[in-house]
Write a protein that binds this DNA or RNA. Sequence first.
DNA 1: GGGGCGCATGTTAGCGTTAACAACGTGATC
DNA 2: GATCACGTTGTTAACGCTAACATGCGCCCC
Lengths: 361, 361
Amino acid sequence: MTKPARRSRPKLRAGATIKDVARHAGVSPMTVSRVVNGSAYVSSTTRRTVQRAVRELGYSPNLAARNLASERGERLGLLYGNPSSAYLSEFLVGALESATRHGVQLVLEKCEPTPVVSRRAVRRLLSGAVVGVLLPPPLCESSVVRAELSAARLPVVTVASGRPAADTMCVHIDDYSAALEMTRYLISLGHERLAFIKGHPNQSASEERWLGFTAALEELSRGSHGARPPPRMEQGFFSFRSGLDAARKLLAIEPAPTAIFASNDDMAAAVIAEAHRRGLDVPRDLTVVGFDDTLIASTIWPELTTIQQPIARMAAEAVDMLVGAVRAGRRPADRLHRLIPHALISRQSAAAPNPAAPPLT
Amino acid sequence: MTKPARRSRPKLRAGATIKDVARHAGVSPMTVSRVVNGSAYVSSTTRRTVQRAVRELGYSPNLAARNLASERGERLGLLYGNPSSAYLSEFLVGALESATRHGVQLVLEKCEPTPVVSRRAVRRLLSGAVVGVLLPPPLCESSVVRAELSAARLPVVTVASGRPAADTMCVHIDDYSAALEMTRYLISLGHERLAFIKGHPNQSASEERWLGFTAALEELSRGSHGARPPPRMEQGFFSFRSGLDAARKLLAIEPAPTAIFASNDDMAAAVIAEAHRRGLDVPRDLTVVGFDDTLIASTIWPELTTIQQPIARMAAEAVDMLVGAVRAGRRPADRLHRLIPHALISRQSAAAPNPAAPPLT
DNA sequence: GGGGCGCATGTTAGCGTTAACAACGTGATC
DNA sequence: GATCACGTTGTTAACGCTAACATGCGCCCC
């Protein structure tokens, strides 16, 4: 009679195990483990021997075993709302990269910011043995979702919240400074009639961007000859459609603004579309800038001058933070908020204002 | 003196183990395992008892242990090229969902279709112990990448290739039929002067779409009164910019086409932008349709009538297929290619042609 | 020159789960 | 009433790895 299949199974698995490597290198498995994990307590000669054995056998550690033995391999939840999918894409790339590095799984869950739906989502995450949650916008602002998560005692890292709660872990950029910088840039190009399209009022980043814009304008009027026309502003909602509406109103003003700063790229793209419809050339007759540097910014023509948020990097950082907190069993005492640098990306949609009077609508 | 920390450690891990559940329910761990995994050989009373215990203790199986014991938990590679990030986003959502379901990890790797870069990417994947690879467009067409992968003897599933190789696993839609359907739809609206913008020549889906378009036109001329003007066509490259160029040429034709079918949404968006610039109203003066139903289709105004590819579903299917093949240790004998249904999404960019003569440029 | 210290390596005992087999009871069958 | 089959449950031994501890060796210093 045959022995149990399992024991006699002829190495279906292609990969060598740590034991094979150990035998090959003439050391104990533990030493191999140490080399692979970069422990300091290995002599350089042994290390070299082992490394060669690893290479020769094409060994690579079994994740499951490693996770089991070292009590890692947790699952993190990613609660995403109604995201710009360009945003989600980059976010996922960054988050997955970091998750793989930490040997952690990522579990996605879609969620709306309503009590019923978010409760269900959180429950599903819990039933999926998730030990921490990533909260990208726009959900990071939803107090309902946040309450639900904290009731479940899940550690949370919010991403890109304009004004993160003091007691919550958060990765974000400085929306205020970014908007300030962009506005200063427009001013430095020579623009004086500036207009702004605000972002969705339920996201705190919108307000920060607006404040940055006004701060730059104040610098300008303080620095020079007193009173200036008040900044033109329209409320938008981050959607292309809302940008179109805002653009129509702003371009109807007399005299028309020479530069429009939209709070995100979708709305900036809408401004360009509307400008073209009116026969205005961008940037000759009108400068348009956006925010976020999402896909659409470099898709349309002319390409948008905008503020780049390193979304992938932020997501990776958020995963790092969450893994750290989960493994430590508590929130980190310091560095609860991590500020990521942004960048002003200059493309073709911004230029100095046309000295000739802009065409009247 | 203290015992080893490990043994005395007071249950840091929140989750109960299978043993806890077994004790609680008064059965053996094996029985619990059977209930959890839905084995048939459990009496219904025992099953209920165990299920209650599971619920009461909030038990959820440890993935790492399960993977280790059942020799699962493989890693799949996702080689992505220069993707539309809208595409990548949806793709990732679907792939991750399915990967989580199968208890499989996903490892991302960026790659260009050049020998050097792709070789490096494949090597990185191998060193990451990847056992199979997903190949979304545009990489699925790169023979260099494919050769590199097959040299490494990695099973591969390509996604959305227009004409999948017969011996390769593939998930795709019927680009030909979809284009045929869309063109018939335009004809049914009353359009006669149709124009087409081709997709990038290095992707076989482009050719399929073009063939679908011409086939529909042929039906039309066969069905009715003989000769018709030949279809107008411009070569595009899937980019917004190339769509703009193509649109300029097509709209300069006399008499101008009443409907333009672009091979993807980015190019369709460009056609709309160019039409607006010329003072044409879409869809009153010009019907524009796209393909793919990516983000931009429902972002711009008017929203695009387009063909929807269920990208997330295709990605999930691809993961299913790959996991199946890997676990079986070979390619499935049948169903090497899976055809996913598409859908024609009718939005605002298409309408019946304007009976009044279109304005001359 | 013995005690102590520090680096390098080996040994042991699990981590939580499941595959394979064993064992047990309960009826049905001859 | 012994036999056999079947449905149900339990037992055992891994899966591949690493934490914790143990050991061994060389070196330095009072």
